[in-house]
Simulated scan of single mutants.
Amino acid sequence: MLGFELSPEQQQLRDLARDVALDVYAPRAADWDLNRTPLPHEELKRLADLGFLGITIPEQYGGHGGTLLDALIVQEEIAKENRQAAFHVFESNVGPCRVLEFFGTEEQRQRYLPQVASGDIEMAIGISEPDAGSAATDMKTKARIEGDEVVINGSKRWISNGGASSHYLVYCRLSDAPGAKGIGAVIVSADAEGVSFGASEKLMGFRGIPSADIYFDDVRVPISDLVVEAGGFRKLFGVFSIERLGNATMSLAIGQASLDRTKAYVAERQQFGRPLIEFQSVQMTLATMAMQVEASRLLIYRAAVNAGDGLPDSYETSIAKCFANEMAKQVSDLGMQMHGGNGYTEEYGLERLHRDSHGWAIAGGTPAIQRVRIASEMFGRSFNQRPEAIQR
Rank of each mutant, 00 (worst) to 15 (best):
231 G>T: 05
49 D>P: 02
181 K>E: 03
64 H>L: 14
146 E>P: 07
263 K>C: 05
303 A>Y: 00
216 F>R: 08
38 P>V: 10
34 L>K: 14
58 P>F: 10
289 M>S: 04
293 V>F: 04
185 A>C: 15
124 A>V: 05
113 L>C: 06
184 G>T: 02
289 M>F: 12
273 G>M: 10
122 E>H: 02
336 M>P: 00
96 P>M: 05
37 T>G: 09
264 A>I: 11
283 Q>P: 00
80 K>Y: 12
229 E>W: 07
270 Q>V: 12
322 C>H: 09
270 Q>D: 13
329 K>C: 07
265 Y>C: 08
288 T>I: 11
44 L>F: 04
114 P>V: 08
204 M>C: 08
265 Y>W: 15
287 A>W: 09
284 M>V: 15
317 T>S: 01
15 D>W: 15
208 G>H: 02
204 M>W: 07
87 F>R: 02
315 Y>H: 15
323 F>I: 08
280 Q>S: 14
313 D>G: 11
332 S>R: 07
55 I>F: 02
228 V>Y: 04
276 L>S: 07
349 G>N: 08
43 E>C: 03
58 P>Q: 09
187 I>T: 03
169 L>Q: 02
266 V>W: 05
155 S>V: 13
379 F>D: 06
196 S>Y: 12
66 G>S: 03
153 N>E: 01
4 F>H: 15
326 E>F: 02
79 A>R: 11
175 S>C: 01
262 T>E: 13
138 D>T: 10
38 P>G: 05
215 Y>D: 01
62 G>M: 08
330 Q>C: 03
216 F>T: 00
235 K>H: 09
25 Y>N: 00
41 H>L: 09
105 T>R: 01
14 R>G: 10
367 P>E: 03
54 G>R: 06
254 I>A: 09
206 F>V: 05
378 M>C: 06
187 I>G: 03
102 F>G: 01
294 E>T: 13
278 E>Q: 13
129 E>T: 01
279 F>E: 01
223 I>K: 13
176 D>W: 06
145 I>Y: 00
212 A>H: 14
257 A>K: 10
153 N>W: 07
128 S>P: 07
382 S>L: 08
333 D>Q: 14
